[in-house]
Each structure stands twice: as C-alpha cells, then as structure tokens.
C-alpha cells in the first residue's frame, strides 16, 4: 500500500498496464432504476351499469420466482376509488403512501368534497410523467377505477411514462394481450355499458383471470376483486380461481403420431 489511496485495490499499472476504462462510464449521467425488482403482473377492469369492477392476482414475483403470494395489489382510496397496480411493488408502496398523505391533507379542509377517481387518475398520471421526465420512473402501470365528477363510472390507466388511456375495459401487462380480446368479444364497443350488469362484469373478470392463470407464467390462482358502485366499495381478497379445466390432459398423448 502506498500514499495514493486512489490506486488502492487496483492491479498495478506497472505490472498489468493501465486499466482500460473505456468500458466504464462512471463520469456519465447518474443512473436511476432501470428495471423493476419485485413485480406484480396484470390488473384487469370492466365498467358496468352503475360501477366498475377491477381485479388482480395476489402474487409478487422476483424474476421467475413466485416470491410473495399474499400481496394485495388493489389499493382502496377513501370511499371513492380503487387503484390497481402492476409493476414494481416498492414503487407501489411509495405511491400508496403518497395517496395516503394526500388523503390526510384533503381532509383538513372541512369542505366535504372528496377527490374522485378521475381527480386521482389525473394526479397519478402527472406524478408518473414527472418521474419519467427525471429519468427515474416509478415502474408501474396502474388502473384507476371509480366515479368521475358527474358520478359516472370512471376507468382509466396510466403507465410508467405517464401515458394515459381510457376505455370501458382495460388491462395491464399480459392482460392487455390475453384479457382485452376476451372482454372485447363479451362487451363489444357498440354495446352500451348500461346493458352490462355487475354480475356480467364480475363473471367476465373471473374468466379473464382464469385465462391469465393458464397462460401467464407470472400469475397466481389467488386473486383480489373490487367492485365500486354508488353504494360503496366491496373488496374481496384471498379469492381462488375456480372451475378450471385440466382433466382433458388425459386425452393428450405424445406430440404427433403417438397414441398411447
């Protein structure tokens, strides 16, 4: 060891030659999170006559490892809205706390107005956009379900870039590929929402969760489901996907010519 701490821990230049630092960009821009760690998969939601139904499974994955199987990704905000989170769980917890502190502040003024789902979505999409503009995104894709200022059912999404999107049914992650086609077939665009009952909506979500359980390798058969109506929010956690179809596996033999 010599009197040049900057050289400590490095191979000696006089023996090995100077280090080729072109592979390092340590003087480059500050690097923030470039990928999520513990993640939740799809969230799916449907509007129906007089409300919105939203569902997500209870899994938090760590890569392909099904690490936590009791993670509730539907977070209730006041008595007005439910936010469904996919993506990074630590960022979900951060946003959850952000919403909680906002809820506390909103209740200081006794004007009696409460933030509705639409307000909440606007706020969250702006938080997400601000963070992506700082190159430090909150790694989530969220669905906000509830009511707007006119007391009409509201459903909208916002992603980690701050992109927003609204539709009578929405899904994040794998659900966007697997659930949306099912929901579109069940509830075509030309069919008015007034014709869709709460039971229809719940049944459709359960069907979508089942398909996701069959086809999404990061999904779980335990899920949470929330129904938001003017009467309030009903959340069912620790639900189990039922009526699965597996027995037909018996008829599958070999991968071509084989019959036994």
């Amino acid at each position: 060891m010599n009197h040049f701490p900057g050289t400590w821990g490095r191979p000696r230049d006089d023996v090995y030659g100077p280090y080729d630092s072109s592979y390092l960009r340590s003087t480059g821009p500050k690097a923030h999170t470039q990928s999520p760690a513990v993640t939740g998969t799809s969230v799916i939601a449907v509007k129906f006559n007089g409300g919105v139904a939203i569902a997500a499974d209870n899994l938090a994955s760590y890569g392909s490892l099904a690490r936590f199987t009791d993670v509730k990704r539907l977070r209730v905000f006041g008595d007005a809205a439910v936010v469904g989170f996919s993506g990074d769980v630590s960022d979900m917890q951060y946003i959850d706390r952000l919403l909680e502190s906002m809820d506390i502040r909103e209740n200081y003024s006794a004007h009696g107005n409460q933030l509705n789902a639409k307000n909440l979505h606007t706020y969250l999409s702006k938080v997400l956009y601000k963070r992506r503009s700082e190159f430090n995104p909150l790694w989530n894709h969220i669905l906000v379900a509830g009511f707007d200022g006119e007391k009409k059912p509201f459903l909208s999404s916002a992603d980690l870039l701050g992109t927003t999107f609204s539709a009578p049914h929405l899904a994040t992650g794998f659900g966007a590929h697997l659930a949306i086609p099912i929901l579109r077939r069940l509830f075509p665009e030309e069919r008015p929402i007034e014709e869709i009952t709460k039971e229809d909506a719940i049944k459709a979500l359960k069907e979508c969760l089942k398909v996701l359980w069959y086809r999404d390798a990061r999904s779980l058969d335990k899920y949470s489901l929330a129904v938001i109506t003017q009467e309030g929010i009903e959340v069912q956690e620790d639900q189990q996907i039922e009526a699965q179809s597996w027995a037909f596996a018996e008829t599958i033999k070999g991968y071509g010519a084989q019959t036994v």
């Binding site: 938090a60 009791d70 993670v71 769980v89 979900m92 917890q93 959850d96 706390r97 909680e100």
Partner: peptide, 8 residues
C-alpha cells in the same frame, strides 16, 4: 401496520 404494507 406500516403504511403501504403488503403481506400479513
């Protein structure tokens, strides 16, 4: 609970 807690 810890604010934002998941798991039980």
């Amino acid at each position: 609970a810890v604010d934002g807690q998941v798991g039980s």
